[in-house]
Amino acid sequence: MNKLPPAIFIMGPTASGKTAAAMHLLESGLPVELISVDSALVFRDMDVGTAKPTREELQRAPHHLIDIIDPTEVYSAAQFRSDARALMDDITARGKIPVLVGGTMLYFNTLEQGIHDLPEADAALRTSLHAEALAIGWPKMHEKLAALDPITAARLSPNDSQRIERAIEICILAGRPMSAILAEPAQDTLAYNLLKIALLPSDRAVLHQRIEARYDAMLAGGLIDEVNMLREKYALNLDLPSMRCVGYRQTWEYLDDEIDLKTSREKGIAATRQLAKRQMTWLRSMEQLQTIDCSGTQMSAEALKLVRTFLP
């Protein structure tokens, strides 16, 4: 019998219904507390474009690690792991079960598998890499990464500036490919008995329809006004992680008259679909998953059934 304390992961691509499934667990009377695993929901004042749970939803089902930093700040996977582990230990000590819900697969992976010994960021090198990218463009930087680390380059989009820059930085500082480091055993894995639930669509067209409908709802709900407010309130630029979030960069470009609203919408929906594809690729590489079809109408009930079977 597994004597480790229980914890539950609820994972899935964007628009798969993760929040609804997690809230259903809580409202069913199970002794659970929710921890958000989302690199966008950590930012204050970014509500519409991140599809953040509403104030009413958060009152019904509080989530840890939402609204914890300003959009000018940076929140790493290592910091998430430290915060999440402290919360999990506290929740467990109080006799409850941590439920970690979200779509940032890097956070889930780092939490479960532990930390690899990657070099810390180097400000001078990043400045140099950024200047090079401005001169030649991110697709060319992607080609540079492919020469240094073809395995990492193969899983990154040529325009994924943040991850390309970090991967090149690691290759230079460590003197070897990031993929080689990540292939080694990580330090300090998670000491919990995990139930990992993946919400995946049997019909990807259904997910694409949800993504489009949700993006249109964001536009109708004030996404443009939100980005305007953020630009007035904070000293932001498009290189910050907050403004790399899907929807925000495309809206920024519209506000700067670089593209029209129709193009901004189309680019935002396309970027969201690409994000969902990356999330599903991550999920399909994970082991010991319990998969639920998020295209169906009984998803939350099926998740609850899995959890009840899992718990002693």
Rank of each mutant, 00 (worst) to 15 (best):
A7L: 13
M11K: 14
P13F: 09
P13K: 09
A15Y: 00
T19H: 05
A21V: 12
A21E: 07
A22I: 05
I35Y: 01
A40K: 07
R44Q: 03
D45F: 00
V48S: 03
A51Q: 11
T54P: 06
E57G: 13
L58V: 12
H63K: 10
D67T: 00
D70E: 10
E73I: 00
Y75Q: 02
S82E: 06
A86G: 07
L87R: 06
I91A: 06
I97F: 02
P98T: 07
P98N: 11
T104P: 02
N109R: 15
G114H: 04
I115A: 14
H116N: 03
D117N: 13
A124F: 09
A124R: 12
L125P: 08
S128R: 12
I136T: 14
W138L: 12
W138E: 14
P139A: 02
E143N: 02
L145V: 11
A147C: 02
L148T: 04
L148S: 09
L156N: 05
P158I: 15
D160A: 15
Q162T: 13
Q162A: 15
R163C: 03
I181E: 06
A186S: 15
A186I: 12
Q187D: 05
T189E: 13
L195R: 04
L195F: 09
I197S: 06
A198H: 08
L199V: 09
P201N: 01
D203E: 11
R204G: 00
R204F: 05
A205E: 06
V206E: 02
L207V: 03
L207R: 04
Q209Y: 01
R210S: 06
M218H: 04
A220C: 00
D225M: 13
E226D: 03
R231E: 02
R231L: 13
A235R: 15
S242Y: 00
G247V: 01
Y248F: 15
W252S: 02
Y254I: 04
Y254H: 09
D256P: 00
K262L: 13
A271P: 07
R273P: 01
W282P: 06
Q288Y: 12
Q288K: 12
Q290Y: 08
Q298A: 09
S300G: 07
P312W: 03
